[in-house]
Design a protein around this nucleic acid. Structure first.
Length: 281
DNA sequence: ACAGATGCCTGGACGC
DNA sequence: TGCGTCCAGGCATCTG
């Protein structure tokens, strides 16, 4: 499931192949994928525009569109659970889960493939901002790599939270970009039990967790995203973080540090993996 | 205001 | 083998 590093990898991939290229048309194969406006208008609004850049905020991806040097709005994308933005030759056979096709340049296309159909796309008019239309984006907390995501900020937020730390760090209004995989991974790296009450964490633990979150996301971006999910980069290739998971999806397998079997519990409705020895209560 | 539950959705794993 | 059930989880929305 794409989290910040996977979305960033997709952004870089799309930027490297599609910038300065015109969208000549497209096709919506599943209408509910288009969140705004309706499916027909979506293709009409994109057609004839050039992709000027690809940007990311949290797990939201958006392209700036130009027409004759002037803004023509934005194309927004959220991959949700299983969305993929693939850069393909138009001759490639249409896979069963293809939801949207955007013809780019003369022979290629961006193909949005999404098995579980949670993924969404938007067209944002030039007189609005992406966060006006992609409403979830306006609520996002700081990017983990920003100055705004300071130890002081993190400490203040956690001190007021009555939730367990696992649920707290999954909250996109606290910090943008962590999903279930990296949440479990950075709690392991910090030796913090996921069910610890957020407000009970000691300053040293908060500092460690803050650093672990930044580190785990940075490492994952450097490695091009995970492979213990069905995430694919724009070329349809798995990233390579996967073999390195400390705890995620390793229930009952030996901890890579101490050999204790990894536990799995449910917190905030999410499967949560941890080492009961390395992450004591 | 906040926190927890639910719905959305497909396909793979599992038990009988 | 086949059928039913559960699970995977990001986010919007609903409920208490």
């Amino acid at each position: 499931m794409p989290e910040l590093p996977e979305v960033e990898t997709v952004r870089r991939g799309l930027a490297s192949v599609s910038v300065n290229q015109p969208i000549s048309g497209g096709e919506v194969l599943l209408t509910r994928t288009i969140a705004h406006p309706d499916a027909d208008e979506f293709i009409d609004r994109l057609t004839g525009n050039t992709i000027a850049s690809w940007q990311r905020r949290g797990k939201y991806l958006y392209a700036e569109l130009h027409r004759q040097e002037k803004s023509a709005g934005w194309l927004g994308v959220h991959l949700r659970m299983t969305g993929q933005m693939l850069w393909l030759d138009r001759q490639e056979p249409i896979h069963k889960h293809t939801r949207v096709r955007l013809l780019v340049g003369t022979t290629s296309e961006i193909r949005f493939v999404d098995q579980r159909t949670f993924g969404q796309m938007w067209w944002i008019p030039p007189d609005r901002t992406p966060s006006d239309i992609m409403t979830g984006m306006a609520k996002l907390g700081p990017e983990p790599f920003d100055r705004d995501f300071s130890i002081e900020y993190f400490t203040t937020k956690l001190s007021k939270s009555h939730r367990n730390i696992k649920t707290a760090i999954l909250d996109q209004t606290l910090v943008a970009g962590l999903g279930n995989i990296y949440a479990d991974e950075c709690l392991f790296m910090s030796r913090i039990h996921p069910n610890t009450l957020a407000s009970s964490l000691k300053p040293k633990q908060i500092k460690t967790l803050h650093q672990a979150a930044i580190e785990v996301l940075t490492t994952a971006i450097d490695r091009g995203g995970t492979s213990f999910s069905n995430y694919l980069n724009v070329e349809g290739v798995n990233g390579n973080y996967g073999g390195e998971a400390w705890v995620y999806n390793r229930a009952l397998q030996p901890c890579r540090v101490c050999d204790t079997p990894i536990s799995k519990i449910r917190l905030g409705g999410r499967g949560t993996h941890f080492c009961p020895h390395c992450q004591p209560e």
